[in-house]
Design a protein around this nucleic acid. Sequence first.
RNA 1: GCCGCCGUAGCUCAGGGGUAGAGCGCACCAUUGGUAAUGGCGAGGUCGGAGGUUCGAUUCCUCCCGGCGGCACCA
Length: 639
Amino acid sequence: MITLPDGSKRNFSGPVTGFEIAADIGPGLAKAALAYKIDGSLTDLAAQVIKNASIEIITLKSDDDTVYDLLRHDAAHVMAEAVQELYPDTQITFGPAIENGFYYDFVRDEPFNPDDLKKIEARMKEIVERNETITRDVWERDKAIEFFEKSGEKYKAEHIQTLESNVEISVYRQGNWLDLCTGPHLPSTGKLGTAFKLMKVSGAYWRGDARNQQLQRIYGTAWRNKKELDFYITQLEEAEKRDHRRLGREMGLFHIQEEAVGSVFWHEKGWTLYRVCEEYMRNRLTKAGYFEVKTPQLVDRGLWEKSGHWEKFRENMFTINDDDDRVLAVKPMNCPCHVQIYKQGTTSYRDLPLRMAEFGSCHRYEPSGALHGLMRVRAFTQDDAHIFCTEDQIVTETKAFCDLLSSIYNDFGFKDVKVKFADRPEVRAGDDATWDRAERALIDATDAAGLDYTHNPGEGAFYGPKLEFVLRDTIGRDWQCGTLQVDFVLPERLDASYIGEDGNKHRPVMLHRAILGSFERFLGILIEHYAGRFPMWLAPVQIAIATITNDADLYAEKVANEFTKAGLRIVTDLRNVKINYKVREHSLDHIPVILVVGRRESDENTVALRRLGSKNQEVLALDDALSQLIEEAKRPDNK
RNA sequence: GCCGCCGUAGCUCAGGGGUAGAGCGCACCAUUGGUAAUGGCGAGGUCGGAGGUUCGAUUCCUCCCGGCGGCACCA
């Protein structure tokens, strides 16, 4: 007895395959069937159902994820078959479906180049054309190992050996090619269709470990039809247009050059954006009870040895040998310096919590391959702060921090924020009892703050567990920005204390926390989030005042003066070019508002207001435009 | 750091063993115009750097630097 998704039932006298069920329902379905689900688990069409079950036939029209996984996994196999046909000296390893596509990792002495990709893609299409039947066999473990050893597939053989002994060894065959694989797969290579494209070659380590051999990975994308493929390609092109490195150049925000790899040259407009964010943050922090400090860039290695950084973070630190044979490190973090400020004088329990903030300029030696525009730099500024408090205060401080953080993300236009709880890593400072306490405290605080969170095991900082705050941008990408870390270790190592109610010395707890993370990275995210079209309060230039003819110059200057006096950031465009040209230029510059003034406006004391992205304009009295735009341009913390 | 690709004008890119070309931008001239490109004219390049092969290298080879895409890394 088989139950279909619509609730209807069909009887079969004995075991049947998915294909037979589909055929029983109708020839069209039999032709379209790709795989089927038995009681929800995806299976090859050729597999049999032997008991009563509810089943669902999967076709190209079924639920997206399942179909894509099938197509993409098959695409990986077809690609591997093509590669081994073209380059017989190649070994296969793994080739899964991934988001938007697939990849396969190969072992081959010669590198694959872009020309090879074209050839492979063409061969893949031939294999689809051949419509090879895909069949599944179950092999004995030893036989499988022997087979792969003999055919020179060392990695496959090695992989089987690492599998648990009770794991079924299944092999999928298509034409003359076969692969060790758990499946499921399409019934034949023809079902893959041709809506796929090979995208790029890269290196990848065997089992993801940099100590292992590096394999050659070929990435591809695969879709249900050409239309979807084209849409995806177009999307990639659109994403490229909002790339912050491109917008940074086009909008004159910043640049990076080879004499200062990993460091940013902020141009006037970019620096304006930066300052707006910094002033906004400073104001929010002050209102939230923080005070601001500034600590040295170069600090003797002795302090880093005490803090544990010299041991745990040495390879990421820039160091300098001064003339007196001292070794100084350019600070990669601000925490040890903050403890030094904390330790000046004596602290009473009455002083706690102390919320010490710094827009701390840090340098870290990041691996060259990791550098990426503003997103990953070697010189950056954190919106860093350390809250020195008692253990009892962790909960309220955490809650207050979470509230502050969501309010700030909201102001920047990020509504979707997720929280991850990261607990003790393998390499850590402090004993297990301390970690138990720290993790307990942070979980309690998180619960008290009413946050939903997911677990991120083993990803805590070396000195304590942390909350990671992940925001999602307009095009659905996730960015980890904020963090809150509970630290019982550093106060101990650097001997920070306070005098308690009982008159004795106690250790404070340190909460390390950041909201934006680094200004550089956060601005990169903002640029891409808004695709350069910033809301008024962030826009480096808020208003362009453009004249129609020189008759309006005097009036335009008067308008400009009014807006400048009101603190708005404007440009005045009196050039002798057509208004169309001016509108185009300022629109391409992503200036949110263009005020056009001509003879008419000059006579009537008005402005013609046009917003970025709109073709309409609105004529307003100058005073009205002024008060309206002043209101719109207010920083959210001043509203 | 590793693998692959790339480096030609400010930007985007073409070219290719005989010292370079387009579009946009920029400068200048004309044009004073009503909401996303007015027309003309001109300047601008040690072809990433250093070696090598060659009569001759921007072009071919080697090394270095940097960029891009992945991988690894990301307190």
